[in-house]
Write a protein that binds this DNA or RNA. Structure first.
Lengths: 128, 128
DNA sequence: CTGTATCCCGCCTGATACTG
DNA sequence: CAGTATCAGGCGGGATACAG
């Protein structure tokens, strides 16, 4: 790298990159592409719930940032293949780890939320 | 854990947790708290650019999810200390890695964006 | 198959001001 | 010091329909 940036600085441009992760779909998309290259329709099916518009948006954004590559095959019907670039691969591990952490710890979080909400129900009753 | 969830399933409740990361400030806040417990004002200063309202919102959300603890000291003036819970510590490493990756790779991403945008300027000109 | 075009909405975010 | 109240705005995101 050329220079180092501190994301805790207000004007740090790498805040933009953190926003890349601050996205509902990025981690899932990168996770899928880390397994193997995928076509548009495959991603659309495997990343359940994403709409084609949003998929396209995020694909373009990641392509612009150099995390994924887009290759068009002029077949009929046309096919487009998306794959991770080396840069994309360098971050995929962290994102996959996040996905896994999420899956592994959701139940504990669910319990925590329930306990928190229950405490809110009883405690803050000025009129009692 | 009790049961395993697949974040790629549409109805997977752990999507909510992924949204936790899909947040502009979470990674920065967790990163700071991973260093040591912080008071409200400290976080406010050190996470540059965050407003008190948004800081409170995210603090509450993380507390509800069980990632951080909130301890009030009835002093005058009052002081409140936020710290990571064991659950919060278990995810902090991944988030810090993301912060570091961001700082280390921003320049490459910046170059990629510039190249992408330049290509858009020249290529898609039907009228030319 | 691979996207685009609209319309719409809710949430996150931000700025500012105020309180115990 | 540690928040809360309020107002406003923008962008991501969702539903639906359409095109090359």
């Amino acid at each position: 790298m050329d220079t180092a940036w501190d994301p805790y600085l207000l004007a740090c441009p790498c805040r933009d990159v953190l926003d890349l992760v601050a996205n509902k779909w990025t981690a899932l998309m990168i996770g899928k592409l880390a397994q193997r290259p995928h076509r548009f329709g495959e991603l659309r099916r495997e990343v359940a719930g994403i709409t084609p518009k949003v998929l396209t948006q995020n694909l373009r954004s990641l392509e612009r940032d150099g995390l994924i590559s887009r290759k068009v095959y002029p077949t009929t019907p046309p096919s487009v293949e998306y794959a991770l670039t080396p840069l994309g691969e360098s971050i995929s591990g962290y994102l996959i780890a996040l996905n896994n952490w999420t899956a592994a710890n959701f139940n504990e979080i669910k319990r925590s939320r329930a306990a928190y909400d229950a405490a809110q129900q009883t405690a803050p009753q000025p009129v009692g």
